[in-house]
């Protein structure tokens, strides 16, 4: 039987993970400070695939694996745009997704921010000027920040969100 009190005073049995990434820890601490100050300790993100090749989705999902675990920094991915502060959009916006993209944005409460993640979302990428897409996310929604990359790595996405937080403090 484990004594609950001894758990509190004894040395922890778990070790620090050897693969701890200093870059992520530093970014995380900084972003947490910004979120604590400006968003009441919690930033709610709604992810939206507007025509991506799914690599960016995989990297955004990876932000929740045990290596990054961004929820500890106050970042939560939410199921509904109604709960979101940030719309994180990937992919060049296709004609087939245009209506859904607009409806998702409209469903978000103010104040709201739009981040375009990945080269295709930034400016249309390799699909620029073709029949099936409108172009980057800025063709449909007011974009506050772009995160280039094919796809951007989890660290780059985190760095982008930090820049957004800092900028949000200045402009709004």
């Amino acid at each position: 039987m484990v004594n609950a009190f001894s758990c509190l005073v004894k040395r922890k049995v778990t070790d620090e993970h050897p693969a701890k990434n200093e870059e992520i820890e530093k970014l995380g601490a900084e972003i947490k400070r910004e979120i604590d100050a400006r968003f009441g300790r919690s930033l709610a993100i709604r992810e939206l695939d507007a025509g991506s090749d799914n690599a960016a989705e995989i990297e955004i999902n990876n932000l929740s694996n045990a290596y990054y675990d961004v929820e500890r920094f106050g970042i939560a991915f939410v199921a509904s745009p109604r709960h979101a502060d940030v719309l994180l959009v990937t992919g060049a916006v296709t004609h087939n997704m245009e209506i859904a993209v607009k409806k998702t944005y409209d469903a978000m409460p103010f104040p709201k921010f739009v981040v375009a993640a990945g080269d295709d979302a930034c400016d249309g990428g390799i699909y620029k000027g073709t029949y099936a897409v409108l172009g980057g996310v800025d063709k449909v929604l007011p974009v506050d920040l772009i995160i280039p990359g094919n796809p951007p790595t989890p660290a780059q996405i985190l760095a982008g969100l930090l820049a957004l937080m800092k900028n949000a403090g200045k402009t709004r």
């Binding site: 025509g51 090749d53 690599a55 296709t94 997704m97």
Partner: peptide, 28 residues
């Protein structure tokens, strides 16, 4: 919904340039 016109996009490209298009069919 994510129809991006991959097959049309490839048309007229050099074979080296088309490698990027093939990579974009599906990220994983």
């Amino acid at each position: 919904y994510t129809h991006r016109g991959i097959e049309k996009l490839a048309e007229g490209k050099s074979t080296e340039d088309c490698v990027k298009v093939a990579e974009a069919v599906s990220g994983d």
